[in-house]
Every structure is written in C-alpha cells, then in structure tokens.
C-alpha cells in the first residue's frame, strides 16, 4: 500500500488521474472500518485532510457550496438556517466523534442506501461538483446514485463540493432506528416544501437499492396543495391528502428484508414518516405565513 498525501487540490487531482484506483480518505469513518476488518486493501490510500478548501463552505444567493469534507458537526452548528434538512440529518449520524470526522463527501463516496445525507440532499435539491484533471462537471443529485453503493463518479474524479439549494421553506428529516445515537437507519425520510415554486421534494433512505425520491407522491401533493389553494389560505392539509401522500411514498419504496427490519416494515414506516414530516413542515409553513400576514 502507498500513502499519498497531496498538499493541494491540484495535486490530489493529478494523483487521482495517475492512480485511478487510489482510494481517497477524508474522515475515514467508512474507509478505515473496511481496512481494519481487511475488507479492503487499496493499492493507494490518498489523504484529503491536507486540502483546506474541502472543509470550507460558501453561502451563495441560491445555494450553499459545501466542501466535500466539511464535518457533520459544522453543518449542524453553522448551516441550520440555510440547510435545515441536512443539518437535522447530520445530527442523527452516529456519535459526536464520528460527526467530528465524517462528512457529506464521504457519504456520497460510499453512496450507501442508508446514508443519512442522501434523503436531505434529494429533498432540498443539490448538485455534486465532480472534478478531474479533465475538468469540472455538475452531477444533479437525482443522477448521482447509480446502484447499491455505486455512484456516478468516474475513476479519475473527486468530489470538490456539493451545491445544496438554500431552503425556501420548511424542511424535515426523520429516521427510524433502535436508539438515538449510533444507529444506521432502518429507513429514513426527508421532506422539503418549496413555496417559491409551489413544489415539494422528498428523499427516501434505506428502503430501495439507492436513495430515491417519491416523485408520484410529490406530484400528487403539489397538485392537491395547488387545487385546494393551500399555499395561500394556509389551511391544515386534509387528512385524506396526507394519507394519500403517505401511501404514494410507501409505494415508491423497493425495500429488502435484513437484520434491521423487514421490507414490509420499511414500506409501512416510510408512510408514517411521510405523514409526520408533512404535518411538521406544513405547520411551520402555516405559522410562518400567518405571522407574515399579521405583521
């Protein structure tokens, strides 16, 4: 094994071009487990910790450009307003020690269907900035997950950042597990209301071979909110609408049975989380809209 220690982003790209099999290591919270247990013996291990820009973020007009290695702890502490869904998801990851090291770049690199960042990114809307010596391309998050633990990165590419749309409305993230800390999701659900475009977006974790959106459910809910004039009148969403939304979210799952739960349980739980997160986000939207009018 060789340990590559690029001191700059350009050096890292050059090293990855020269050794496409090199395994980048950021927080190491996925990579080191595999090495410690002999599940992986990479020829080259490439440390990304020496590249300062990967731990920076920039808040722009439309989106936050989140460096690939910004630890979850920072996201929770500093980006709660701009990226509420991702901040909530970050807080559910593992433990303080893991959140101090792990970040979204590593979550995307591993692309586990159980990764907690994914439902939040799908719901908020995001693009992955993938870079190689050949240039930069922006991969829409919807095209990023290509299979179980597979992603759209080319062998010579590294993730520089993920551009996450800033929240234009309430967002929620909910996860089912056996306790609060140190839990890999049995299933997880992210929901973002987008009042600016009068749309909603969802993200489902651990209930299909990849993280997925429940597109039919999103379209149904957007249409029902529009038809009922809900965005303007700020009324409580009718139970039948919430129920149908939940049913369509369940239907978007394609889960498996495993040690953490059965397929049937996952499908059911996603429906429950969908209904709950809809209630929570819609309550915040109504309250904010009501206060806006009163003022």
């Amino acid at each position: 094994m060789d340990f590559l220690r690029p001191a700059s982003w350009e050096e890292a790209l050059a090293a990855k071009a020269e050794h496409p099999s090199a395994v980048p290591i950021a927080g190491g919270t996925d990579v080191m487990v595999e090495i410690n247990f002999d599940h992986r013996r990479p020829e080259y291990l490439m440390d990304l910790n020496r590249i300062p820009e990967l731990t920076d973020w920039e808040v722009g007009e439309e989106s936050v450009r989140l460096g690939a290695s910004v630890p979850y702890t920072r996201i929770m502490e500093h980006l709660r307003t701009e990226l509420p869904g991702l901040a909530l998801a970050a807080h559910t990851v593992a433990s303080p020690q893991i959140r101090n090291r792990g970040g979204v770049g590593g979550n995307l690199g591993t692309a586990s269907p159980a990764g907690d960042a994914h439902p939040a990114l799908l719901a908020a809307g995001a693009e992955v900035e993938a870079v190689s010596v050949r240039g930069t391309r922006m991969i829409p998050i919807d095209d990023f997950y290509t299979g179980v633990k597979r992603n759209a990165l080319a062998p010579d590419e590294l993730i520089r950042a993920v551009h996450v749309s800033k929240a234009d409305g309430p967002q929620q993230f909910a996860k089912v597990g056996t306790r609060n800390a140190m839990v890999i999701a049995v299933c997880a659900f992210g929901l973002a209301l987008h009042p600016a475009t009068r749309t909603v977006r969802t993200g489902i974790g651990s209930a299909a071979p990849t993280p997925v959106r429940a597109r039919t459910a999103e379209e149904f809910l957007a249409a029902a909110l529009e038809e009922g004039g809900f965005w303007d009148n700020g009324k409580v969403v009718t139970p039948s609408v919430a129920q149908e939304f939940a049913r369509l979210c369940s239907a978007a799952c394609n889960p498996i049975d495993d040690v953490r739960g059965t397929a049937g349980y996952r499908r059911h739980a996603i429906g429950v989380l969908a209904r709950r997160t809809l209630t929570w986000t819609w309550e915040s939207y109504r309250t904010a809209a009501g206060e806006g009018k009163a003022a």
Binding site: I25, T29, L45, Q97, I98, N100
Partner: peptide, 13 residues
C-alpha cells in the same frame, strides 16, 4: 483539539 475515534484515523493523517 477535536474528539475522534483514533481507530478510524489513518496514521498518516
């Protein structure tokens, strides 16, 4: 200064 699991930090890091 930051608490981490040292089992998950590569020595070279």
């Amino acid at each position: 200064g930051v608490p981490v699991c040292s089992c998950l930090v590569a020595a070279g890091q």
